[in-house]
Amino acid sequence: MKPFAFFPGCLIPVRYPAMEFAIRQTLPKLGIEIVDLEGASCCPDPIYFKSKDKVAWLSVAARNLTLAEDLGLDVFTNCSGCTATLSEAYHLLKNDELREKVNRRLKKIGRKYKGTSRVRHVATLVRDEAGYDAVRESVVRPLDGMKMAIHYGCHLLKPSKIMNVDDPNNPEVLEKMVEAIGATPVRHRNWYLCCGKACQHEAIPLNMMHALLGTVKDVEAEILCLICPTCFSQFDHGQMKVAKHFNDDYHIPPVYYFQLLAYAQGIPYDKLGFDRQRFKPESLQRFATSSAQVEN
């Protein structure tokens, strides 16, 4: 097993522990060893705190990266926001002047940022370190014929010169990951749209989500598969607001990819926290008897 430092962030461990559970269940089956980071803080978030003070934001991000550097490990996150902050910090701190400025702050707490720990989102970590075939082989009940729309969100792919993981105009990593669990990925017309969470305006995100959910419905997807907890909150809780505002009804359950993988690997439906969602992926249960369920 290859070890990687796990940076869980805030939103997943605090509000969506089922997602963290799924990560911890699925990765060891793909040969990835999870090493916990002691003393990590918020990444900090790339929307709110970054808007206050970019230098302080970079300094706290750099401190989080030094925790992985201390262990001599690369770091992975389960959240697109954390991936954005830590990747951008890793990129910006290649600049000597900025690194020196940040290190002057880190010196106050006896730390030094070196730039030796690479940052990856768990989806691309799995692609690069385990591969799609390993995912396929780990599956005990393939989700055959289940149509899944994919929401990439923004920060997994962009800015592409920093994230450097896939073609932002025609990505394939999540399609391949969905295929590896036996399901059928479907691309809907508004696949590239943002979830709108960062926008501090009432109508813009509502209109965006309305447009996006509409095209997901057009392609008759059963699930909206995504890899970011912020996008998840938009399409779960937010979907209720959209439905009310436009007097429309979609009932499209958003599901975090690693919960789908955990289910396909045999973890029972009722252990995966789907009861906590506003829109529950109940159609998954048709696979419950299709193969032996593994007790974890």
Partner: peptide
């Protein structure tokens, strides 16, 4: 978290974070 067999959340070392939010004396 306990429901998913996950340990309780640990506090963040705020003594360190607070110092990083302020400029260094030579900054």
């Amino acid at each position: 978290r306990e429901r998913f067999g996950l340990p309780p959340m640990k506090p963040v070392p705020m003594d360190e974070i607070s110092k990083l939010l302020e400029p260094a004396s030579d900054e």
